[in-house]
């Protein structure tokens, strides 16, 4: 059932020209940034060769690329997530799901999975770009995989947050805007100190971005997703009643 719903959502997302436009634009920005970083690296390569502990190509090119994608995901995810529930309500198709035998858990997980598959495509495409470094140099595979995991967890967190705001708002644009506002606020918490900083997804992503794989960061993202998915389930269950 979750698969049926996720497949339908992916179909709807890919049927919209705007999705293709956004994906194409995203790849263009990432590709351009990748080439620019590569160019910079090649220019300073001779100087780097004289240093004792010089940074490698992966940390100089791939890590900043992942960092840029993290920022772009922050802005892009609300544009996709707003459609999940708010747009179904606006187009009156929500009643088909609400009156189906699917439980609220299945509906929410189906929607979440559909969006996560779309974001995974974006992430895999960019990680494939990073892996191109292996053609010319010895790429740090561990760092690339760590970034893949980090981006994926970050995307899941933004997707869960966006899904919740899509459930509580009737207007898709309002859903996108509130999700974006909250995501930016959480991102800015990275500049705070102490406990508040620990709440920022960005701070946890930075660890993975620099190749530091810590279970605390993974647990943070998993809890973040569970929190917003549960809130969404609760909201929908209260409205439909029963299951």
């Amino acid at each position: 059932m979750i698969r049926t719903l996720a497949r339908k959502d992916l179909h709807t997302l890919f049927a919209a020209p705007s999705t293709w436009m956004m994906l194409a634009l995203l790849q263009f920005i990432l590709g351009w940034f990748f080439l620019a970083r590569l160019d910079d690296y090649l220019q300073v390569q001779t100087q780097l060769a004289q240093m004792d502990d010089a940074p490698g190509a992966t940390i100089s090119i791939a890590a900043p690329l992942a960092n840029l994608l993290a920022l772009l995901l922050l802005m892009l995810t609300p544009l996709f997530s707003m459609r999940l529930i708010a747009e179904e309500r606006r187009n009156q198709t929500w009643l088909l799901l609400a009156t189906s035998p699917l439980s609220s858990v299945q509906i929410v997980l189906g929607k979440f999975t559909g969006l996560l598959i779309l974001l995974s495509i974006v992430i895999i495409a960019s990680v494939a770009m990073m892996s191109l470094l292996a053609l010319g140099t010895q790429a740090d595979l561990g760092l690339i995989l760590c970034n893949l995991l980090g981006l994926w967890l970050l995307a899941a967190a933004y997707a869960a947050l966006g899904l919740y705001f899509s459930a509580i708002n009737r207007q898709p644009v309002v859903a996108a805007f509130t999700a974006l506002a909250v995501s930016v606020a959480l991102w800015l918490l990275d500049m705070a100190s102490g406990m508040l900083r620990a709440l920022s997804p960005n701070m946890h992503f930075q660890n993975l971005n620099s190749g530091l794989l810590s279970s605390a960061d993974i647990v943070y993202f998993v809890l973040f997703c569970i929190f917003f998915v549960m809130l969404t389930i609760h909201h929908i269950r209260r409205e439909r009643g029963g299951h």
Partner: peptide, 30 residues
């Protein structure tokens, strides 16, 4: 009872709301 066994109850139900719940970008068969 829809409050207790909604999954079984709703499987026996077909509903056409006031505005048909149709995905405009889908084909009829889909």
């Amino acid at each position: 009872d829809l409050a207790q066994r909604a999954d079984l109850g709703k499987a026996c139900l077909g509903f056409l709301p006031e505005h048909p719940p149709l995905y405009r970008d889908m084909r009829v068969d889909d």
